[in-house]
Design a protein around this nucleic acid. Structure first.
Lengths: 127, 127
DNA sequence: GCACTCTTCAACCGAAGGGTTGCATAAGGC
DNA sequence: GCCTTATGCAACCCTTCGGTTGAAGAGTGC
């Protein structure tokens, strides 16, 4: 079923978390497991709408459900987060390295005689 | 411009990265800046389609553009990644703590007098 | 068995997304 | 000036998405 390649899986997880209601569901599930009805209660939309949201989260691998009588208890599966963080960290790191190189180049251009400032450039917040 | 509240900003970033083409653009921009035309070249879709993708990335804060003659040079803005990682880490950590507590409770239930030992862990391996 | 609760499925609707084509605009190259 | 390049904007098409209502399972509790 959802044994797709990494790209599609990544798309699913990002898309799942792009919705504020679904993020809120995830936030609440981080605190404790809950049934569909409990999860739906705080929102103004119908239970069916929440059920749909939960299906999206389930398809993305972020949650699982277990039968408990006629209820379904929903659990957060935090491992899927790693998919995203790994992707993000990879490119963030790459971009940061690039900034450091750029800074070094700029430093050299501004001070051609002095040696380039060492690697521990505090690049931190720009803007 | 897009100085929205955190929730909407978060939705925008997640939604922006939910598309594989846009993720690929980000990946390439992590390596080096590029013009719109350069970015569009590898894909089969039209330049306008890529221009739209870049607009989505720009609205989410992930990229900026600078005028360079009639070209626009596109830069990656890696700080926005923090928005996501902070959100993710928060709930991942919360969920992990919950698992630890659960493990402790289960251990105590199985061995009320002894101190927590390994249980017949029905749960999958937690890293 | 029957009523009631919890959840999902199905059909539908309007809005948003990703794509297209076509045109407008802006800046070089001659 | 004029043609060409590079980009953005607008209108449109089709699909997906988030929501609704309505009905169908699936279990519990008398």
């Amino acid at each position: 079923m959802s044994a797709e390649d990494g790209a599609a899986a990544l798309s699913n997880v990002f898309a799942a978390l792009a919705d504020p209601t679904r993020r809120d569901l995830v936030a609440r599930l981080a605190e404790r497991d809950a049934t569909v009805g409990e999860l739906a209660e705080p929102y103004e939309v119908t239970v069916q709408a929440i059920s749909k949201h939960l299906k999206v989260l389930e398809d993305s691998g972020l949650i699982t459900k277990t039968k408990d009588a006629q209820r379904r208890t929903v659990h957060l599966e935090a491992e899927v987060f790693d998919l995203m963080t790994k992707w993000i960290e990879r490119y963030r790191r790459q971009a940061e390295q690039r900034y450091r190189r750029l800074d070094a180049v700029l430093a050299e251009m501004n001070h051609p005689e002095t040696q380039p400032a060492d690697t521990d450039n505090t690049k931190e917040q720009a803007s």
